[in-house]
Design a binder for these strands. Structure first.
Lengths: 194, 194
DNA sequence: AACGGCCTGTGATCTACCTCACTTAAAAAG
DNA sequence: CTTTTTAAGTGAGGTAGATCACAGGCCGTT
Protein backbone atom coordinates (compact mmCIF):
# COMPACT_ATOMS: atom_id res chain seq x y z
CA UNK A 1 0.00 0.00 0.00
CA UNK A 2 1.32 3.42 -0.87
CA UNK A 3 1.56 6.18 1.73
CA UNK A 4 -1.16 8.16 -0.03
CA UNK A 5 -3.48 5.19 -0.02
CA UNK A 6 -2.77 4.59 3.67
CA UNK A 7 -3.86 8.10 4.51
CA UNK A 8 -7.01 7.74 2.51
CA UNK A 9 -7.74 4.39 4.09
CA UNK A 10 -7.30 5.73 7.59
CA UNK A 11 -10.42 7.83 7.18
CA UNK A 12 -12.41 4.80 6.15
CA UNK A 13 -11.12 2.80 9.09
CA UNK A 14 -12.19 5.51 11.52
CA UNK A 15 -15.58 5.63 9.79
CA UNK A 16 -16.09 1.89 10.18
CA UNK A 17 -14.77 1.70 13.71
CA UNK A 18 -17.17 4.40 14.87
CA UNK A 19 -19.75 1.62 14.50
CA UNK A 20 -17.88 -1.65 14.66
CA UNK A 21 -14.24 -2.00 15.80
CA UNK A 22 -11.71 -4.00 13.77
CA UNK A 23 -8.44 -5.72 14.61
CA UNK A 24 -5.41 -4.67 12.57
CA UNK A 25 -5.55 -7.97 10.70
CA UNK A 26 -9.20 -7.49 9.86
CA UNK A 27 -8.58 -3.97 8.66
CA UNK A 28 -5.68 -5.17 6.55
CA UNK A 29 -7.99 -7.70 4.91
CA UNK A 30 -10.86 -5.28 4.45
CA UNK A 31 -8.86 -2.40 3.04
CA UNK A 32 -7.33 -4.62 0.36
CA UNK A 33 -10.73 -4.78 -1.36
CA UNK A 34 -11.14 -1.06 -1.90
CA UNK A 35 -9.64 0.65 -4.90
CA UNK A 36 -9.10 4.41 -4.89
CA UNK A 37 -10.12 6.59 -7.79
CA UNK A 38 -9.85 10.30 -8.53
CA UNK A 39 -12.37 12.22 -10.62
CA UNK A 40 -12.65 15.68 -12.00
CA UNK A 41 -15.66 17.94 -11.64
CA UNK A 42 -18.54 16.85 -13.88
CA UNK A 43 -17.24 13.33 -14.37
CA UNK A 44 -19.74 10.50 -14.12
CA UNK A 45 -19.43 7.63 -11.67
CA UNK A 46 -22.65 6.01 -12.86
CA UNK A 47 -24.69 6.59 -15.99
CA UNK A 48 -28.23 5.46 -16.66
CA UNK A 49 -28.23 2.24 -18.64
CA UNK A 50 -24.73 1.16 -17.65
CA UNK A 51 -23.83 -1.63 -15.23
CA UNK A 52 -22.94 -0.54 -11.69
CA UNK A 53 -20.01 -2.61 -10.48
CA UNK A 54 -19.12 -0.42 -7.50
CA UNK A 55 -20.35 1.08 -4.30
CA UNK A 56 -18.46 4.34 -3.62
CA UNK A 57 -17.22 5.80 -0.39
CA UNK A 58 -16.39 9.49 -0.68
CA UNK A 59 -12.97 10.48 0.64
CA UNK A 60 -13.21 14.06 -0.57
CA UNK A 61 -15.46 16.06 -2.84
CA UNK A 62 -19.17 16.04 -3.46
CA UNK A 63 -21.44 13.82 -5.58
CA UNK A 64 -25.02 14.00 -6.67
CA UNK A 65 -27.20 11.02 -7.57
CA UNK A 66 -30.21 11.89 -9.70
CA UNK A 67 -32.90 10.62 -12.02
CA UNK A 68 -33.80 12.44 -15.21
CA UNK A 69 -37.40 12.65 -16.39
CA UNK A 70 -38.68 12.80 -19.99
CA UNK A 71 -38.37 16.61 -20.00
CA UNK A 72 -34.71 16.28 -19.10
CA UNK A 73 -35.27 17.63 -15.61
CA UNK A 74 -33.05 16.33 -12.81
CA UNK A 75 -34.51 14.95 -9.58
CA UNK A 76 -31.89 14.49 -6.92
CA UNK A 77 -32.05 11.31 -4.90
CA UNK A 78 -29.01 12.00 -2.80
CA UNK A 79 -25.98 14.18 -2.29
CA UNK A 80 -22.82 12.53 -1.03
CA UNK A 81 -20.04 14.40 0.70
CA UNK A 82 -16.99 13.20 2.61
CA UNK A 83 -17.60 9.90 4.46
CA UNK A 84 -20.86 9.14 2.67
CA UNK A 85 -21.62 6.02 0.70
CA UNK A 86 -23.25 6.30 -2.68
CA UNK A 87 -24.24 4.19 -5.64
CA UNK A 88 -27.32 3.04 -7.51
CA UNK A 89 -28.08 0.36 -4.93
CA UNK A 90 -30.78 -1.33 -6.92
CA UNK A 91 -28.58 -1.84 -9.95
CA UNK A 92 -25.55 -2.65 -7.77
CA UNK A 93 -27.24 -5.37 -5.74
CA UNK A 94 -29.07 -6.97 -8.64
CA UNK A 95 -26.20 -6.48 -11.09
CA UNK A 96 -28.57 -4.78 -13.49
CA UNK A 97 -28.41 -1.48 -15.38
CA UNK A 98 -28.39 1.89 -13.67
CA UNK A 99 -31.64 3.85 -13.50
CA UNK A 100 -29.89 7.01 -12.35
CA UNK A 101 -26.81 9.12 -12.90
CA UNK A 102 -24.13 9.91 -10.34
CA UNK A 103 -21.64 12.66 -11.07
CA UNK A 104 -19.13 14.85 -9.33
CA UNK A 105 -20.17 18.36 -8.34
CA UNK A 106 -16.58 18.92 -7.24
CA UNK A 107 -13.33 17.10 -7.92
CA UNK A 108 -13.50 13.87 -5.90
CA UNK A 109 -11.54 11.03 -4.43
CA UNK A 110 -13.55 7.88 -3.83
CA UNK A 111 -12.93 4.33 -2.68
CA UNK A 112 -14.63 1.72 -4.86
CA UNK A 113 -16.01 -1.57 -3.58
CA UNK A 114 -17.24 -4.36 -5.83
CA UNK A 115 -20.37 -6.29 -4.84
CA UNK A 116 -18.58 -9.62 -4.60
CA UNK A 117 -15.86 -8.01 -2.50
CA UNK A 118 -18.41 -6.54 -0.17
CA UNK A 119 -19.95 -9.97 0.25
CA UNK A 120 -16.52 -11.51 0.80
CA UNK A 121 -15.74 -8.93 3.44
CA UNK A 122 -19.05 -9.54 5.18
CA UNK A 123 -18.52 -13.29 5.04
CA UNK A 124 -14.96 -13.21 6.38
CA UNK A 125 -15.12 -10.36 8.86
CA UNK A 126 -17.96 -10.52 11.30
CA UNK A 127 -17.54 -6.93 12.39
CA UNK A 128 -18.06 -5.78 8.82
CA UNK A 129 -21.30 -7.63 8.46
CA UNK A 130 -22.39 -5.82 11.58
CA UNK A 131 -21.14 -2.52 10.21
CA UNK A 132 -23.10 -2.83 6.99
CA UNK A 133 -26.21 -3.99 8.81
CA UNK A 134 -26.21 -1.00 11.10
CA UNK A 135 -25.26 1.43 8.36
CA UNK A 136 -28.09 0.13 6.26
CA UNK A 137 -30.56 0.50 9.14
CA UNK A 138 -29.50 4.09 9.60
CA UNK A 139 -29.88 4.75 5.91
CA UNK A 140 -33.34 3.23 5.95
CA UNK A 141 -34.37 5.49 8.81
CA UNK A 142 -33.07 8.57 7.01
CA UNK A 143 -35.07 7.71 3.90
CA UNK A 144 -38.22 7.15 5.92
CA UNK A 145 -37.82 10.63 7.35
CA UNK A 146 -37.40 12.09 3.90
CA UNK A 147 -40.54 10.36 2.64
CA UNK A 148 -42.58 11.69 5.55
CA UNK A 149 -41.13 15.10 4.89
CA UNK A 150 -42.07 14.93 1.20
CA UNK A 151 -45.59 13.80 2.04
CA UNK A 152 -46.52 16.10 4.85
CA UNK A 153 -44.40 19.22 4.76
CA UNK A 154 -44.87 22.15 2.39
CA UNK A 155 -41.85 23.19 0.35
CA UNK A 156 -40.87 25.98 2.70
CA UNK A 157 -40.65 23.69 5.71
CA UNK A 158 -38.68 21.08 3.78
CA UNK A 159 -36.19 23.76 2.83
CA UNK A 160 -35.86 24.98 6.39
CA UNK A 161 -35.27 21.47 7.67
CA UNK A 162 -32.64 20.85 5.03
CA UNK A 163 -30.72 23.96 6.02
CA UNK A 164 -30.97 23.12 9.70
CA UNK A 165 -29.89 19.52 9.22
CA UNK A 166 -27.15 19.98 6.64
CA UNK A 167 -25.96 23.58 6.87
CA UNK A 168 -22.56 22.81 5.33
CA UNK A 169 -24.15 21.02 2.40
CA UNK A 170 -26.60 23.86 1.79
CA UNK A 171 -23.61 26.20 1.54
CA UNK A 172 -21.69 24.04 -0.85
CA UNK A 173 -24.48 23.14 -3.25
CA UNK A 174 -25.97 25.53 -5.85
CA UNK A 175 -29.53 26.33 -4.87
CA UNK A 176 -30.99 24.97 -8.06
CA UNK A 177 -29.73 21.55 -6.98
CA UNK A 178 -31.23 21.97 -3.53
CA UNK A 179 -34.51 22.67 -5.33
CA UNK A 180 -34.13 19.46 -7.35
CA UNK A 181 -33.56 17.59 -4.09
CA UNK A 182 -36.57 19.13 -2.37
CA UNK A 183 -38.90 18.58 -5.30
CA UNK A 184 -39.60 22.21 -6.16
CA UNK A 185 -38.56 24.44 -9.03
CA UNK A 186 -35.54 26.68 -8.86
CA UNK A 187 -37.77 29.77 -9.08
CA UNK A 188 -40.06 28.68 -6.27
CA UNK A 189 -37.11 27.98 -3.99
CA UNK A 190 -35.72 31.41 -4.74
CA UNK A 191 -39.03 33.01 -3.76
CA UNK A 192 -39.33 30.92 -0.60
CA UNK A 193 -36.24 32.42 0.91
CA UNK A 194 -38.16 35.50 2.00
CA UNK B 1 -43.99 -23.68 22.37
CA UNK B 2 -47.67 -24.25 21.77
CA UNK B 3 -48.92 -25.81 18.54
CA UNK B 4 -50.49 -22.53 17.47
CA UNK B 5 -47.26 -20.69 18.07
CA UNK B 6 -45.35 -23.31 16.14
CA UNK B 7 -47.53 -22.81 13.11
CA UNK B 8 -47.12 -19.07 13.28
CA UNK B 9 -43.39 -19.41 13.70
CA UNK B 10 -43.09 -21.70 10.69
CA UNK B 11 -44.00 -18.80 8.40
CA UNK B 12 -41.30 -16.65 9.92
CA UNK B 13 -38.73 -19.40 9.55
CA UNK B 14 -39.55 -19.78 5.87
CA UNK B 15 -39.34 -16.01 5.49
CA UNK B 16 -35.89 -15.88 7.06
CA UNK B 17 -34.57 -18.95 5.27
CA UNK B 18 -35.51 -17.52 1.90
CA UNK B 19 -32.54 -15.23 2.53
CA UNK B 20 -30.34 -16.96 5.07
CA UNK B 21 -30.71 -20.64 6.10
CA UNK B 22 -30.77 -21.66 9.77
CA UNK B 23 -30.01 -24.89 11.61
CA UNK B 24 -32.78 -26.26 13.82
CA UNK B 25 -30.83 -25.21 16.89
CA UNK B 26 -30.43 -21.68 15.58
CA UNK B 27 -34.11 -21.44 14.75
CA UNK B 28 -34.99 -22.72 18.20
CA UNK B 29 -32.88 -19.95 19.72
CA UNK B 30 -34.18 -17.25 17.41
CA UNK B 31 -37.85 -18.06 17.71
CA UNK B 32 -37.70 -17.91 21.49
CA UNK B 33 -37.24 -14.14 21.26
CA UNK B 34 -40.45 -13.39 19.39
CA UNK B 35 -43.73 -12.96 21.23
CA UNK B 36 -47.03 -13.33 19.38
CA UNK B 37 -49.82 -10.82 19.75
CA UNK B 38 -53.34 -10.55 18.35
CA UNK B 39 -55.06 -7.27 17.61
CA UNK B 40 -58.49 -6.19 16.54
CA UNK B 41 -59.24 -3.84 13.68
CA UNK B 42 -58.42 -0.21 14.57
CA UNK B 43 -56.12 -1.11 17.43
CA UNK B 44 -52.83 0.78 17.71
CA UNK B 45 -49.43 -0.90 17.72
CA UNK B 46 -47.58 2.40 17.99
CA UNK B 47 -48.80 5.83 18.96
CA UNK B 48 -47.03 9.14 18.46
CA UNK B 49 -45.24 10.17 21.63
CA UNK B 50 -45.02 6.68 23.11
CA UNK B 51 -41.90 4.53 23.37
CA UNK B 52 -41.49 1.86 20.68
CA UNK B 53 -40.18 -1.31 22.28
CA UNK B 54 -40.94 -3.65 19.38
CA UNK B 55 -40.36 -4.36 15.75
CA UNK B 56 -43.38 -6.22 14.32
CA UNK B 57 -43.54 -9.02 11.81
CA UNK B 58 -47.02 -9.46 10.36
CA UNK B 59 -48.35 -13.02 10.42
CA UNK B 60 -51.81 -12.06 9.18
CA UNK B 61 -53.76 -8.87 8.66
CA UNK B 62 -52.83 -5.44 7.43
CA UNK B 63 -51.20 -2.45 9.12
CA UNK B 64 -50.69 1.13 8.18
CA UNK B 65 -47.92 3.38 9.47
CA UNK B 66 -48.62 7.08 9.12
CA UNK B 67 -47.73 10.57 10.23
CA UNK B 68 -50.39 13.14 11.07
CA UNK B 69 -49.94 16.80 10.16
CA UNK B 70 -51.29 19.85 12.01
CA UNK B 71 -54.55 19.71 10.04
CA UNK B 72 -55.06 16.16 11.26
CA UNK B 73 -54.42 14.71 7.81
CA UNK B 74 -52.80 11.28 7.58
CA UNK B 75 -49.72 10.67 5.43
CA UNK B 76 -49.00 7.00 4.99
CA UNK B 77 -45.38 5.96 5.27
CA UNK B 78 -45.99 2.27 4.77
CA UNK B 79 -48.56 -0.46 4.57
CA UNK B 80 -47.62 -3.84 6.03
CA UNK B 81 -49.31 -7.07 5.03
CA UNK B 82 -48.42 -10.70 5.72
CA UNK B 83 -44.64 -11.29 5.97
CA UNK B 84 -43.77 -7.60 6.16
CA UNK B 85 -41.82 -5.95 8.95
CA UNK B 86 -43.05 -2.71 10.42
CA UNK B 87 -42.30 -0.31 13.23
CA UNK B 88 -41.19 3.28 13.79
CA UNK B 89 -37.56 2.40 13.13
CA UNK B 90 -36.17 5.71 14.23
CA UNK B 91 -37.83 5.54 17.63
CA UNK B 92 -37.14 1.81 17.91
CA UNK B 93 -33.40 2.03 17.24
CA UNK B 94 -32.79 5.11 19.31
CA UNK B 95 -35.24 4.08 22.05
CA UNK B 96 -36.96 7.42 21.74
CA UNK B 97 -40.61 8.44 21.31
CA UNK B 98 -42.66 7.54 18.26
CA UNK B 99 -43.16 10.19 15.59
CA UNK B 100 -45.85 8.17 13.83
CA UNK B 101 -48.86 5.95 14.43
CA UNK B 102 -49.22 2.34 13.41
CA UNK B 103 -52.63 0.73 13.52
CA UNK B 104 -54.52 -2.29 12.24
CA UNK B 105 -56.64 -1.86 9.13
CA UNK B 106 -57.76 -5.44 9.66
CA UNK B 107 -57.59 -7.84 12.60
CA UNK B 108 -53.94 -8.87 12.90
CA UNK B 109 -51.55 -11.39 14.31
CA UNK B 110 -48.01 -10.12 14.72
CA UNK B 111 -44.74 -11.36 16.16
CA UNK B 112 -42.99 -8.80 18.35
CA UNK B 113 -39.23 -8.42 18.66
CA UNK B 114 -37.51 -6.23 21.24
CA UNK B 115 -34.45 -4.22 20.20
CA UNK B 116 -32.17 -5.91 22.69
CA UNK B 117 -33.42 -9.31 21.55
CA UNK B 118 -32.77 -8.43 17.95
CA UNK B 119 -29.23 -7.46 18.86
CA UNK B 120 -28.81 -10.65 20.85
CA UNK B 121 -30.02 -12.72 17.94
CA UNK B 122 -27.67 -10.92 15.57
CA UNK B 123 -24.79 -11.37 17.99
CA UNK B 124 -25.38 -15.07 18.60
CA UNK B 125 -26.59 -16.26 15.21
CA UNK B 126 -24.43 -15.24 12.32
CA UNK B 127 -27.08 -16.12 9.74
CA UNK B 128 -29.49 -13.68 11.38
CA UNK B 129 -27.05 -10.81 11.20
CA UNK B 130 -26.80 -11.59 7.51
CA UNK B 131 -30.58 -11.80 7.21
CA UNK B 132 -31.12 -8.39 8.76
CA UNK B 133 -28.34 -6.84 6.72
CA UNK B 134 -29.80 -8.04 3.47
CA UNK B 135 -33.36 -7.26 4.46
CA UNK B 136 -32.31 -3.78 5.40
CA UNK B 137 -30.54 -3.31 2.06
CA UNK B 138 -33.66 -4.36 0.22
CA UNK B 139 -35.75 -1.99 2.27
CA UNK B 140 -33.35 0.85 1.52
CA UNK B 141 -33.62 0.17 -2.19
CA UNK B 142 -37.41 0.15 -2.04
CA UNK B 143 -37.45 3.52 -0.28
CA UNK B 144 -35.06 5.01 -2.82
CA UNK B 145 -37.44 3.97 -5.56
CA UNK B 146 -40.33 5.55 -3.75
CA UNK B 147 -38.46 8.83 -3.34
CA UNK B 148 -37.60 8.95 -7.02
CA UNK B 149 -41.21 8.19 -7.79
CA UNK B 150 -42.42 11.01 -5.53
CA UNK B 151 -39.97 13.44 -7.07
CA UNK B 152 -40.30 12.72 -10.73
CA UNK B 153 -43.64 11.09 -11.44
CA UNK B 154 -46.99 12.87 -11.62
CA UNK B 155 -49.77 11.49 -9.39
CA UNK B 156 -51.33 9.45 -12.16
CA UNK B 157 -48.15 7.55 -12.90
CA UNK B 158 -47.48 6.92 -9.21
CA UNK B 159 -50.94 5.44 -8.91
CA UNK B 160 -50.46 3.22 -11.96
CA UNK B 161 -47.14 1.92 -10.62
CA UNK B 162 -48.68 1.18 -7.25
CA UNK B 163 -51.44 -0.90 -8.81
CA UNK B 164 -48.99 -2.75 -11.02
CA UNK B 165 -46.59 -3.46 -8.22
CA UNK B 166 -49.03 -4.31 -5.44
CA UNK B 167 -52.31 -5.33 -7.04
CA UNK B 168 -53.44 -7.33 -4.01
CA UNK B 169 -52.76 -4.43 -1.69
CA UNK B 170 -54.62 -1.98 -3.92
CA UNK B 171 -57.64 -4.27 -3.69
CA UNK B 172 -57.53 -4.60 0.05
CA UNK B 173 -56.97 -0.98 0.98
CA UNK B 174 -59.63 1.75 0.82
CA UNK B 175 -58.71 4.19 -1.91
CA UNK B 176 -58.53 7.14 0.41
CA UNK B 177 -55.61 5.41 2.12
CA UNK B 178 -53.92 4.77 -1.21
CA UNK B 179 -54.25 8.50 -1.81
CA UNK B 180 -52.60 9.23 1.54
CA UNK B 181 -49.77 6.90 0.55
CA UNK B 182 -49.30 8.49 -2.87
CA UNK B 183 -49.39 12.04 -1.56
CA UNK B 184 -52.59 13.21 -3.27
CA UNK B 185 -56.05 13.99 -2.02
CA UNK B 186 -58.83 11.41 -2.03
CA UNK B 187 -60.77 13.46 -4.59
CA UNK B 188 -57.86 13.80 -6.98
CA UNK B 189 -57.19 10.08 -6.87
CA UNK B 190 -60.83 9.41 -7.65
CA UNK B 191 -60.64 11.67 -10.70
CA UNK B 192 -57.38 10.13 -11.88
CA UNK B 193 -58.91 6.75 -12.42
CA UNK B 194 -60.30 7.83 -15.77
C1' DA C 1 -86.88 -1.97 7.35
C1' DA C 2 -84.58 1.92 9.08
C1' DC C 3 -80.58 3.92 11.11
C1' DG C 4 -75.83 5.53 11.44
C1' DG C 5 -71.03 5.02 9.68
C1' DC C 6 -67.78 4.93 6.22
C1' DC C 7 -66.38 5.00 1.54
C1' DT C 8 -66.53 6.88 -3.15
C1' DG C 9 -67.67 10.00 -6.93
C1' DT C 10 -68.45 14.72 -8.79
C1' DG C 11 -69.03 19.75 -9.40
C1' DA C 12 -67.23 24.47 -8.24
C1' DT C 13 -63.82 27.24 -6.66
C1' DC C 14 -59.13 28.39 -5.05
C1' DT C 15 -54.10 28.35 -4.57
C1' DA C 16 -49.37 26.70 -4.33
C1' DC C 17 -46.39 25.90 -7.41
C1' DC C 18 -44.77 25.50 -12.33
C1' DT C 19 -43.28 27.37 -16.73
C1' DC C 20 -41.58 30.84 -19.66
C1' DA C 21 -39.09 35.01 -20.37
C1' DC C 22 -35.88 38.38 -19.11
C1' DT C 23 -32.10 40.52 -16.08
C1' DT C 24 -28.10 40.73 -13.27
C1' DA C 25 -24.28 38.73 -11.05
C1' DA C 26 -20.67 35.76 -10.49
C1' DA C 27 -17.52 32.26 -11.81
C1' DA C 28 -14.96 29.37 -15.25
C1' DA C 29 -12.65 29.16 -19.45
C1' DG C 30 -10.03 31.17 -22.95
C1' DC D 1 -8.65 41.01 -19.15
C1' DT D 2 -12.37 39.35 -22.11
C1' DT D 3 -15.61 35.88 -23.31
C1' DT D 4 -18.57 32.16 -22.16
C1' DT D 5 -21.00 29.56 -18.93
C1' DT D 6 -23.54 28.97 -14.84
C1' DA D 7 -26.23 30.67 -11.01
C1' DA D 8 -29.82 33.39 -9.05
C1' DG D 9 -33.68 36.81 -8.61
C1' DT D 10 -38.21 38.46 -10.46
C1' DG D 11 -42.54 39.26 -13.10
C1' DA D 12 -46.68 37.36 -15.61
C1' DG D 13 -49.58 33.87 -16.55
C1' DG D 14 -50.97 28.91 -16.56
C1' DT D 15 -52.11 24.39 -14.34
C1' DA D 16 -52.21 20.32 -11.42
C1' DG D 17 -54.04 19.36 -7.57
C1' DA D 18 -56.26 21.05 -2.95
C1' DT D 19 -60.36 22.24 -0.61
C1' DC D 20 -65.23 22.54 0.21
C1' DA D 21 -69.77 20.83 -0.36
C1' DC D 22 -73.07 17.49 -1.45
C1' DA D 23 -75.06 12.96 -3.04
C1' DG D 24 -75.41 8.12 -3.57
C1' DG D 25 -73.91 3.32 -2.28
C1' DC D 26 -72.68 -0.20 0.86
C1' DC D 27 -72.23 -2.13 4.81
C1' DG D 28 -73.23 -3.83 9.94
C1' DT D 29 -76.51 -2.66 13.98
C1' DT D 30 -80.71 -2.10 16.16
Amino acid sequence: MTTAKKEIGAGLRRHIEAISPLTDAEWEFVSRHFTPRKLRKHQYLVQQGDPVPYDFWVVSGLLKAYAVDEDGKEHILQFAMEEWWCTDYHAYQTESKAAIFIDCMEACEVLCLRLRDRETICGQVRAMERFFRIKSNLGYIALQKRIISLLKEPAEERFGNLIRQYPRLAQRVPKKHLAAYLGVSRETLSRLKK
